[in-house]
Nucleic acid binder design. Structure first.
Lengths: 224, 224
DNA sequence: GTTTGGATAAGTGGATACAAAAATCCAGTG
DNA sequence: CACTGGATTTTTGTATCCACTTATCCAAAC
């Protein structure tokens, strides 16, 4: 059972893998700003290898949508405009809705109990938005998606989460209004318990889109 | 306006780009079988370059899901099990449904006329399944998705099409029963003309899933 | 003061060389 | 005759080098 929304294994067996994980981590933590140029030589020096594996890592990051690669122009940290960010949430909403639709028919009483436990753990992890809470929150969602038993779907969802993460971080820092986290997730569980697939799917879609609209409030229209 | 479902520009300005396009083409045309190993040195020799750009092309192909890359094990042509193939269609159905949902509100009378023209061109391109017809069919769909004005969504859809293409080709070769192509696409246009967003979205979802179930008939359960 | 051209520096792309890992082959053993 | 262990071959991964493209900077011209 997949319980993590990370898009790749955490073991770096090759230099390329190490570079990839290092850069992904740096990007997710917001070490670079959108538009920053990543110079292979510098990064290679930081982690003690040559430019070559770093270049290949760039290619993978580009595929993840975290950086942009142009011939002879190097590697630039990708920025999402508000439009692109919203688009990503739209895509997430249908994919995560689909995951719920596929997961629900497989759910048994034990699964619901586990969801209750995960929700509890999430609440106990602190403020909605704290880094512990974010982890538990991902766990909660990943658990549901995992039940769909659709590896490709899960990977796609994970990739979108990775791409949005830097922005979420900014947003969470600003979050003044308390997230209606408890209510929303309880509603999600309730919808699942009701067994109404279409309803559960819609609740998940709305949950994801709700996050997007919340995010929009803190972003200025032209913002990258 | 994006009118092609190809996932990248066709101009090869660098050796890596050339290798990528060459390999993508070979894979889409079914030159290799699933499980075949791609030897960088051989491919490099074929197109007259060193292994290095070929290696980088491999990474991009892996991101597209066309090949699998394992450390020290090289590059293997990806195979989709019937389950994975069905999963891909499930994902396509919600993404293409979303595209329709977003496109419809922007459609005017001219757009509908263009759709009529595209359908006509598709019919005139020959047998459903011929390579000309496939192209026109893609054009038809791409036109609708393009109207959604969601670049990322369109790219994701395109990527899934590329991944499935080799299988579609096999399937189309076997297709004995006439595709109900005309009726299905006319129904799609009708649904769009009705202006009922939810209905149009559902028609598109069914259209995509219908293709999947048709495909399933020709595949043996354990097939790669 | 702004613009333009070109020298110079910086950086990228690709090829070759070398090291390390995996696959293959083969002889010896049970 | 199947199996094991190790040498050999093949292939992959990484570093270094060179050629070429792009960016930067400065001076001369308008």
């Amino acid at each position: 059972m997949i319980t993590s929304l990370s898009s790749s294994s955490p073991v770096a067996s090759t230099a390329e893998e190490e570079a990839y994980l290092y850069l992904q981590r740096s990007l997710r933590l917001g070490r670079y700003k959108a538009g920053d140029r990543l110079i292979p030589e510098d990064i290679a020096a930081e982690i003690g290898m040559s430019r070559m594996p770093v270049r290949e890592a760039f290619r993978r990051l580009a595929a993840d949508g975290l950086v942009t690669l142009r011939p002879n122009r190097g590697c630039v940290v990708a920025g999402l405009t508000l439009d692109e960010l919203n688009e990503t949430f739209e895509i997430r909403s249908v994919l995560e809705g689909l995951a719920v639709r596929l997961a629900l028919p497989k759910m048994t009483a034990e699964h619901f109990e586990e969801l209750d436990r995960l929700l509890l753990r999430m609440e106990r992890a602190g403020e909605a938005g704290s880094s512990d809470w974010v982890l538990r929150h991902q766990e909660f969602h990943a658990y549901i998606y995992g039940l769909s038993a659709r590896p490709k779907l899960i990977r796609q969802i994970a990739a979108l989460h990775v791409a949005i993460e830097p922005y979420m971080r900014i947003w969470l820092d600003y979050a003044e209004k308390p997230l209606s986290a408890r209510e929303e997730h309880q509603a999600l569980i309730d919808a699942l318990r009701s067994g109404d697939v279409a309803q559960a799917e819609r609740v998940m879609e709305d949950h994801v889109l709700g996050t997007a609209s919340l995010l929009a409030e803190f972003a200025t229209p032209g913002r990258r």
